[in-house]
């Protein structure tokens, strides 16, 4: 798990650097009169992957934005319980994305990405893959929370 997470983090860094590079080079080359036709399309392909992988990273290192007006006032034990429930809910939603993401991936292999001959399904694939990774993260978090809760209940 830790391994996947670290690979993913470095992958995100690489993607971000690649996107900056592609868009910057595209602008420079066009100014010089040699536009790179595919660079922006590839940048957008990488951007979709960056968005989904980074969304999983945010679960590890930060927090996805949420309203805490209600949860802050909750008793810690109930809050933990609520958070576990929300994690389960998120896993279900992500499961839906995986299922229908794969369906979409299979449905339209002909469509191409912008001016390139790259199949658009490689953009689409970022949703099921990203969702699977997020499910793994949430499941790990859920079991950890569960294990921690037991000794607390003993106190």
């Amino acid at each position: 798990m830790q391994m996947i997470h670290r690979i993913e983090r470095w992958l995100c860094v690489l993607l971000l650097v690649a996107i900056v590079f592609l868009v910057f080079i595209a602008a420079i080359m066009r100014t010089l009169g040699y536009p790179l036709i595919w660079s922006v399309d590839v940048a957008q392909l990488l951007f979709a992957w960056l968005a989904m992988l980074a969304a999983n990273q945010t679960f590890h290192h930060g927090q996805h934005a949420s309203v805490d007006i209600f949860t802050r006032r909750l008793h810690p034990a109930y809050r933990e319980l609520l958070f576990s429930g929300l994690d389960v809910l998120m896993i279900v939603v992500l499961g839906v994305l995986v299922w229908f993401g794969v369906e979409l991936f299979m449905a339209n292999p002909q469509r191409t990405l912008g001016s390139t001959s790259i199949a658009y399904r490689w953009v689409t694939l970022c949703v099921p893959v990203g969702a699977v990774l997020m499910i793994l993260t949430l499941a790990t978090r859920l079991t950890r929370r569960h294990h921690r809760e037991n000794p607390e209940a003993g106190l």
Binding site: C12, L50, A55, T58
Partner: peptide, 20 residues
């Protein structure tokens, strides 16, 4: 530089998932 890249990733992940 690597630190800035890594820090950006968390911000990007949060904002992009909302936009998506």
């Amino acid at each position: 530089l690597i630190t800035s890249l890594k820090d950006s990733i968390d911000d990007i992940g949060m904002i992009m998932l909302i936009i998506l």
